[in-house]
Write a protein that binds this DNA or RNA. Structure first.
Length: 389
DNA sequence: TCTGGGGTCCTAGGACCC
DNA sequence: TCTGGGGTCCTAGGACCC
């Protein structure tokens, strides 16, 4: 089973402030270079979507309400979601903040009516936490993921291997998980417009396709033929890198203008590494120029570290040496080649949800977080304009 | 007012060693 | 007869996902 929360951030905001219910809602930043993180289904009707610049979204839907994201709250809801799922099966793989894979073999073979069983699970989740989800049931993880994506919100889709031609082949190629906006036009140019076309090309062992997809070709071949992994990986995977980046308030040229930001970024990387109990044996300085082109310079350390000032000194040196005259939009620092400190403390990570087993606790946590935060940071554009805010 | 921020994985080329 | 072949490690850039 793949289970995915619908419009997760937007749903959390509605739970936090029920007056938002039923309204077009955008979760995202409003300032320069703000983009839509998630939006409610009401906003989607107007053509608003994730990744869209917020000002553009507001052109599509001027009456939309924009809310700044509250990640701490989403993490709490996320944990309550995973602990809820664990009532049904202990074998779960956290895939992101709002989705997971679950081995449901046992409960689904033991129950009389899998559809009724899963519907009950879905509605109970909604009743207990307020979160709505889409569920995909299939023999492999990739098929389950594709299935959960097919119907939203509150979808429940079964996808057997024999259903692949009927259910997947008609879909446009960009709906194939793993094929994105760069590969799509290239495949389309080659006459591959649907997943069915892709399946056919794989059958003919199309050499263009093999070249275009590289190593990914073999994975695609397995997936589309109903193969690929069906193993739910329960173990929490250690992070391989810890990075912080920031789009600057103003484009800038020269080290002096970004040194303060760079310093803060390095200290934040250091804090997060400490939280994860990690040290790094290398770092990369990332820069994005005003033409939106990315650049990076990496270095490997003699001794692993996570010291903020050390990272800052090295990032500064890299910046001065390579980017001092570049017009820069974004700077970022990533700590890499991570290893654990010798004396491992107990990890307190994002997904350590066992300690939030009780859903009631979630409500207390949310209430506490709400108290700490300002009043809901809502803004109706028309009203704000009237007030001149 | 063009385009966030957190990640993972892949590729191609080069340095270096035997 | 201008210049092998295998391996590791590193770097820069990109594609993709949520």
């Amino acid at each position: 089973m793949h289970i995915d929360l619908n419009a997760f951030f937007a749903t959390c905001e509605v739970l936090r402030d029920p007056s938002l219910k039923g309204k077009p809602l955008i979760v995202g930043h409003v300032g320069r270079s703000g983009i839509v993180s998630t939006c409610s289904y009401e906003a989607r009707k107007y053509g608003v979507h994730s990744g869209q610049p917020t000002f553009q979204a507001l052109k599509c839907c001027p009456e939309a309400i924009v809310v700044e994201p509250h990640f701490k709250i989403y993490e709490v809801y996320s944990r309550s979601f995973f602990s809820y799922v664990k009532r049904y099966s202990q074998i779960i793989e956290v895939a992101s903040i709002d989705e997971c894979y679950v081995d449901m073999t046992k409960p689904l073979t033991e129950c009389k009516d899998p559809v009724a069983y899963l519907r009950a699970m879905q509605f109970e989740l909604k009743k207990e936490t307020g979160l709505s989800c889409s569920i995909g049931i299939a023999p492999t993880k990739w098929l389950a993921k594709m299935a959960s994506d097919m119907k939203k919100p509150m979808g429940l889709v079964f996808l057997r291997k024999k259903d692949i031609p009927k259910m997947l082949y008609p879909m446009p190629i960009e709906n194939f998980w793993g094929i994105g906006k760069k590969t799509t036009p290239r495949l389309r140019e080659h006459g591959i417009n649907t997943i069915g076309d892709l399946a056919k090309a794989v059958e003919y062992e199309d050499s263009y396709l093999q070249k275009e997809l590289g190593k990914f070709y073999l994975t695609v071949k397995q997936w589309i033929q109903g193969g690929g992994s069906d193993t739910v990986e329960v173990e929490y995977a250690d992070p391989k890198s810890i990075g912080v980046s920031e789009t600057l308030m103003y484009d800038s040229t020269g080290y002096d203008e970004i040194s303060k930001t760079l310093h803060e970024i390095c200290l934040e990387v250091s804090r997060r590494a400490a939280k994860e109990n990690k040290v790094g044996k290398g770092m990369t300085l990332h820069v994005k120029d005003t033409a939106f082109k990315s650049h990076s310079k990496a270095m490997t350390f003699e001794e692993p570290t996570r010291d903020g000032e050390t990272l800052f000194a090295r990032a500064s040196a890299l910046y001065k040496a390579h980017y001092n005259t570049l017009e820069v939009r974004l700077v970022g620092v990533t700590l890499e080649k991570l290893g654990s400190m010798a004396k491992a403390e107990v990890q307190m990570n994002l997904w350590n949800y066992e300690q939030y087993e009780e859903l009631d606790k979630t409500k207390l946590l949310i209430a506490e977080l709400n108290r700490k935060l300002d009043k809901p940071s809502l803004m109706r554009l028309s009203e704000a304009k009237k007030k001149g805010e």
